[in-house]
Write a protein that binds this DNA or RNA. Structure first.
Lengths: 341, 341
DNA sequence: CTGAAAGCGCTTACAG
DNA sequence: CTGAAAGCGCTTACAG
């Protein structure tokens, strides 16, 4: 009757055993009924659910993780949170994962391979139920960690080239090509590319720019301006000044990200460079503020929220052991033509 | 000799027991030596650490959480990730927490009390080692959840008024007053306040604006423009137009956040309203881009990175059971006067 | 300062 | 379809 002599460490928590007792079944049956795993007599399931509900039972994530060797959270690795792109992605992932009972753990790699590797190592110790990573470019060690972990993983923001890899994204290269073709269609001939950060996706956009120009015999490598610093409004202004100083004949600039293009538009206002008459300026991603610039910025709208949601759904399926209908989902992009081109 | 007949669920993981055996001590001693809890013979500690190092032992977070009823992560509740302010805060928190072995779990409340309550409930089930929440305003149920959980909690972004609460922030009201006094010192007399979102901190800035104007007998309630929508560049432009239409004599506008002020500056360019000659515009927070606007934006620089770091350090102390030297830390703010005023 | 025992609350693996 | 037993890898509580 009395537990006072025992070594109990009462936590006051309602446990599986409590529910089992209330429902008149064994704890294992409660566990199975609640998780929907294996077949359980529907009548028992109902009885168990009623009891769990009544007692306010909530499974202990730590106990579950220890017993099953699998956590109730998903780790998401992104380069940066200061790029609004990834904020939209994360919000969408979280919105899809939370109702399914998974927490989202955000790891920030700062575009650094060794940081990513280190984060991966840490996260994997916590046995996430799933993993979402940005793009395909990473160290061999990082790839080995992912593959060796047995944790389902979805890659986002790019389209997959290799089989056996799950991904949700769009073709950065096609988008870069389409944006350049738009400038060509507007009659622009000396089109510069201004890239910062120089991560894999920026280089893919650059490749699209090259393709479009090569197709019309107008590719000039001297119009590639690549800066390793993170993209920012400040850098965009600097790059504009630099490009105009070095290549005054340039009649359009393709900035690899909207923040650069916004900075360039502000600098153009300051320098009294007429946009788009004298110079067309286009960006990428359609970030906040771009439509309110002077003139409004032409850009490529990227479906990062849709990507986040689709990636989360695919991951939930993989966690349940289902093979996705399409392992590599391409969600496309949308050219948004505004006043700056 | 053979485990093949047993019901072992081999995980291949190096455990406490492995380290204990290698060091020739009991598992409990290993546990204590590694955590630095209670006094352990220094010689043994060295021996244990060497063995742990050699075997590549890493504690299992799930097992630890289950046994100790306390997780190895900290939950951080913020209103939004799309405000760069909170991104800076989160990055700083994570930077301070990671080396200490704590993961950061981000919960987004969307400025919604019931969402915050729900998040708190979920997070508390996971038994976080600590909690960081934004400001002091929340539902009674949420406050009760925090207090009843026994989980150490630090409030950020505001200064504390109540005893027994830990906080790191600055006085939003003082900052609002100082910014308004700056406008008065510049000779502005009809100073409007434009607020969006209308969360507690915005209302504190409004209060500072009122104070400054009341002190000089220039407070006019008709110059308070309050909009419940989230602040954004687009809304800033709209509010500027609206204010100029309703109160054409206004000679300065205090926008409660930089994104509003940036939108207002862009709208002023479009409408050819001379800033600062005809109209001074000031913002709050010193967000990305503000210094590159035309003209550059006068604003208040808020120490959110320092707040994140200090809050994380205070929390680590509280987790260790130490009382902080100062329970309410005020990190101040900095007036940044640029061309727009 | 050190340890043997029990327990945290689940799920896996085996049986029936 | 259901269950008794064991185990996941730690830490707590009690003793000495």
């Amino acid at each position: 009757m009395s537990d006072s002599r025992s070594r109990r460490r009462a936590t006051g928590r309602t446990t599986l055993a409590d529910v089992a007792q209330a429902a008149g079944v064994s704890p294992i049956t409660v566990s199975r009924a609640l998780r929907g795993e294996r077949a359980v007599d529907p009548a028992l399931v109902a009885r168990v659910q009623e009891a769990a509900q009544r007692l306010g039972y909530v499974p202990d994530p730590a106990a579950r993780a220890l017993a099953s060797q699998r956590g109730t959270h998903v780790a998401v690795l992104i380069p940066l949170l200061s790029n609004a792109l990834f904020v939209d992605l994360i919000e969408a992932v979280q919105r899809a994962l939370r109702p399914a009972g998974y927490q989202t753990l955000i790891g920030i790699t700062h575009y650094d391979e060794s940081e990513e590797e280190q984060l991966l190592r840490e996260q994997l110790l916590h046995r996430p139920a799933g993993l979402i990573v940005t793009g395909f470019e990473r160290s061999a060690a990082a790839r080995a960690l992912i593959a060796g972990s047995g944790v389902p993983c979805v890659h986002v923001m790019e389209t997959s080239t290799q089989p056996g890899q799950y991904s949700v994204g769009f073709s950065q290269q096609d988008a870069g090509r389409a944006l350049t073709e738009h400038l060509l269609a507007q009659g622009r001939r000396r089109i510069a590319f201004a890239g910062a950060q120089l991560d894999a996706r920026v280089m893919q956009r650059l490749q699209g720019w090259r393709q479009a120009l090569q197709a019309v015999g107008g590719h000039d490598p001297r119009l590639e301006f690549l800066h390793p610093a993170p993209s920012s409004i400040a850098l965009g202004g600097q790059m504009l000044e630099q490009i105009l100083a070095f290549r005054p004949a340039v009649d359009a600039i393709f900035f690899c990200n909207d923040d650069l293009a916004q900075g360039a538009l502000l600098a153009a206002l300051r320098l009294k460079v007429a946009v788009p008459r004298r110079l067309a300026i286009v960006g990428f991603n359609d970030l906040t503020g771009s439509e309110h610039m002077l003139p409004p910025l032409t850009t490529v709208r990227t479906p990062r929220a849709a990507i986040g949601e689709a990636a989360a759904r695919m991951l939930l399926g993989l966690i349940r052991g289902e093979a996705p209908a399409t392992p590599g989902v391409d969600l496309g992009y949308e050219l948004v033509v505004r006043g700056s081109s």
